[in-house]
Amino acid sequence: MASAGLSFENPVFAAYAAYSSVVLLKMFCVTGYTTITRFRVGVFANPEDVKGNKGAKVRLDNSDVERVRRLHRNDLENIPAFLAVGLLYVMTGPSAGAALWHFRVFTAARCLHTVAYLAGVQPWRVLCFLTGLVPTLSMTVQVLMAGAL
């Protein structure tokens, strides 16, 4: 069993930190893509945002912008849960192999989910979502079992 320490000397924590950074970076890229999409289509959410942007309009119903925003919201609903339960999971002292699989599957699934969401392809989007949900639920159950009185 790996050390439960929150130190980069603990390979499980180091892996958690690395994979967490990857999904956070992915989420920040989606944020940037939202901005790029807004400028590309000339659609903004606030009146002050159209000033200085010739031809820009205030609209909340552009399908391109809304797709990226829904993707971002989906990230905001799933990535923080992974970050929180993943840190608690690290503290249970899991084996490095098991922990790596949890982190890798979640990260790969979220990255593929982003591609599927932007491309608008089903059933891949839902399959990627569910694949990412499995390791998060697994870690949650293991944290509950470790913390049970």
Rank of each mutant, 00 (worst) to 15 (best):
A2L: 06
S3C: 03
S3G: 07
A4R: 09
A4S: 15
G5D: 15
L6P: 00
L6V: 07
F8G: 03
F8V: 05
E9K: 07
E9C: 01
N10T: 06
N10M: 04
P11F: 08
P11V: 04
P11I: 02
F13Q: 02
A14D: 12
A15Q: 12
A15M: 06
Y16K: 03
A18M: 03
Y19P: 00
Y19I: 00
S21H: 03
V23M: 01
L25W: 07
K26G: 00
C29V: 12
C29Q: 00
C29R: 09
V30F: 02
T35M: 07
I36V: 12
T37G: 06
F39G: 04
R40E: 03
F44C: 02
N46F: 11
N46Y: 14
D49R: 06
G52Y: 15
N53I: 11
K54M: 12
K54P: 13
G55E: 15
G55S: 10
A56E: 14
K57Y: 09
K57I: 14
R59G: 06
L60F: 13
L60G: 08
D61W: 14
N62G: 04
S63H: 10
D64S: 04
D64H: 11
D64Y: 12
E66I: 08
E66R: 13
R67K: 13
R69A: 02
R70H: 13
R70M: 13
H72N: 07
N74W: 00
D75C: 06
L76F: 03
L76C: 05
E77L: 07
E77V: 00
E77S: 07
N78F: 03
N78Y: 01
I79V: 15
I79G: 01
P80E: 04
A81W: 02
F82N: 03
L83D: 13
A84H: 03
V85F: 11
V85S: 08
G86F: 12
Y89W: 09
P94S: 01
G97W: 04
A98H: 10
R104N: 06
R104L: 04
T107D: 02
A108D: 01
R110T: 01
C111A: 13
L112T: 11
V115Q: 02
A116E: 04
L118S: 00
A119Y: 14
G120L: 09
Q122P: 05
V126A: 15
C128D: 14
C128K: 01
T131P: 00
L133Y: 07
V134N: 01
V134M: 11
P135F: 11
P135N: 09
P135Q: 08
P135R: 12
T136E: 05
T136D: 07
T136L: 00
S138H: 14
M139N: 10
V141M: 10
V141L: 10
Q142K: 11
Q142I: 02
Q142G: 08
M145R: 14
G147F: 10
A148M: 15
L149W: 13
